[in-house]
Nucleic acid binder design. Structure first.
Length: 471
RNA sequence: GUCCCCAUCGUCUAGCCGGUUAGGACACCAGCCUUUCAAGCUGGCGACACGGGUUCGAGUCCCGUUGGGGAUACCA
């Protein structure tokens, strides 16, 4: 069997779309799984909507996700000469013909047809006119068979197809001489020797036409696999306005690429009961047989869970590197890499789902001063807390080493000396003193990560604050 | 309107040739753990859209209904 070749063919309209990313992933995975070739081709034949910036955004999204391609990126727009040639050859073979029907006339005829209860497909007025190149302004249409099945065996949906009579001779070349999508894809996939076309199910309905085009060229169509669409949480189609569909946006929201990949691969594909997949594992297990047939909702709770999972697994240096920009955002300035911060970040892993969330939880550590949460202060930094904080402070100053164990011991001693106050009574005021809020990792760990000097200074400040308030 | 497609817990899904107490994961709820928040552990709630067939037997096959999606461009 010949080498497997897949391609991802996005139209560059702004950014890498969630659904496109999954299509790209599937194509990438299928090629990798079979030791094949993954091609990237930008479908920019619609000049009005395609820009270099959006093309760059799509490529950037691919790279960020870790989807590397073997050939390309090719631009469909740079292949127009080849497309024209292909159209000419079709005309020469009698498989396509020139059409001089005007837009207005076409619209009018279609409206009439539809009003009469028909489908409104092209009536074939120019089909047998044998118009030459000098016929004036014209489009080119494929000459489709009048009847017969245009079918294929879809690798996801199974036997599929449509009767040729339902389609009609569609336009493949505009009056300005540029090719239309359906013609261009077929020619490109043929030229690039694509063996498996894996794409969104929104293309399912125009596959019969493409099958007809392959036949017109006298060549075998590739295998097709249509992947069900991803729909919004609402159950509706993903909308750019309402829904987050941009991979770049997910990245900016602090999601880990590993989580995003894992999330989308499971949207429509499964491998038994396995939930966790790295890119490598996808590359070695992905198959078309287990791609489902119904649309999947992009419900983000699992993405969040996956985010936490991968946050826990990330190497310390990797985590710090990825988190740094977000930490600096929170700190409002440069953040220095120091052991105490690393300790805190490790503690924050199981408390966060995204980098943004983690950076927010590290706020009290990376900022110079504490920002107090008013409710926490009222509850824990009150008159009764003053002697307690004082006792803790005195004990902490005395301990030789600043470790979790020594801090724990010191707290126990203070609690005992204060006549058996619960550790909770002790811990909360201290927590508010050093973090400004009532939520943080264990108090000993928290103090340990902040370090001796900063901790003591913050406790002193809190004692002062609590005293003034009480007095 | 017309064509095409889809249908298992709230969500993602397992379910290969018809025989399962319909499984897993997320979410949710409860308990344990616990100085807060998490994490972790244990347990719970929870689904074959509906109606007809075929069959000894249907989540699995067939038809219909309903619901949802996609396509109906000189867009891709």
């Amino acid at each position: 069997m010949s080498e497997i070749r897949t391609r991802f063919a996005p139209s560059p309209t702004g950014f890498l779309h969630l659904g496109s990313a999954r299509t790209a992933l599937f194509n990438w995975a299928f090629a990798r799984r079979h030791g094949g070739t993954f091609i990237l081709r930008v479908e920019d034949t619609d000049r009005d909507r395609s820009t270099r910036e959006s093309e760059a955004a799509v490529l950037e999204g691919m790279k960020w996700l870790g989807l590397d391609w073997d050939e390309g990126p090719f631009r469909q727009s740079e292949r127009s000469e080849r497309h024209r040639e292909a159209i000419e050859s079709l005309i020469a073979k009698g498989r396509a013909y020139r059409c001089i029907c005007t837009r207005e006339s076409l619209e009018e005829r279609k409206a009439r047809d539809v009003a009469a209860g028909a489908k409104g497909i092209y009536d074939g007025r120019c089909r047998d006119l044998a118009l030459g190149p000098d016929c004036g302004e014209h489009t080119v249409r494929v000459r489709l068979p009048r009847e017969g099945m245009l079918g294929w065996d879809d690798l996801v949906f199974g036997p599929s197809g449509q009767d040729a009579a339902q389609i009609g001779d569609v336009i493949i070349q505009r009056t300005d001489g540029t090719p239309l999508y359906n013609l261009a894809v077929v020619v490109d996939d043929l030229d690039m020797r694509v063996t498996h076309v894996i794409r969104g199910a929104d293309h399912h309905p125009n596959t019969p036409l493409q099958v007809a085009l392959y036949r017109a060229f006298g060549l075998e169509p590739p295998s097709f696999a249509h992947v069900p669409l991803i729909i919004a949480e609402s159950g509706k189609k993903l909308s750019k306005r309402r829904d987050n569909v941009s991979i770049q946006q997910f990245r900016d929201d602090g999601h880990l690429r590993e989580a995003l990949i894992n999330w989308i691969v499971r949207l429509g594909w499964s491998h038994g009961d396995t939930e966790i997949f790295s890119l490598d594992e996808i590359a070695s297990t992905f198959d078309l047989e287990h791609v489902g047939r119904s649309a999947a909702r992009a419900e983000p709770s699992k993405l969040l869970w996956l985010g936490q999972h991968y946050l826990k697994a990330l190497g310390s240096n990797d985590l710090f590197a990825r988190l740094r920009p977000h930490l600096e955002q929170v700190a409002g300035g440069p953040v220095t890499d120091e052991p105490g911060l690393r300790v805190l970040l490790d503690l924050l892993r199981e408390r966060s789902h995204t980098l943004i969330e983690m950076a927010a939880l590290a706020r009290w550590h990376v900022r110079q001063s504490v920002e107090f949460d008013e409710k926490a202060v009222q509850k824990h930094l009150n008159a009764t807390a003053v002697p307690l904080l004082g006792a803790v402070r005195n004990a902490l100053v005395e301990i030789p080493g600043w470790t979790v164990a020594s801090l724990e011991k010191a707290f126990e001693q203070v609690a005992a000396a204060a006549g058996g106050v619960s550790l909770g009574k002790l811990a909360q005021p201290v927590r508010v003193a050093v973090t400004g809020g009532s939520v943080s990792p264990g108090i000993h760990e928290t103090l340990c990560s902040l370090g001796r000097e900063r901790s003591l200074a913050r406790i002193d400040a809190a004692i002062a604050l609590a005293s003034t308030r009480a007095g």
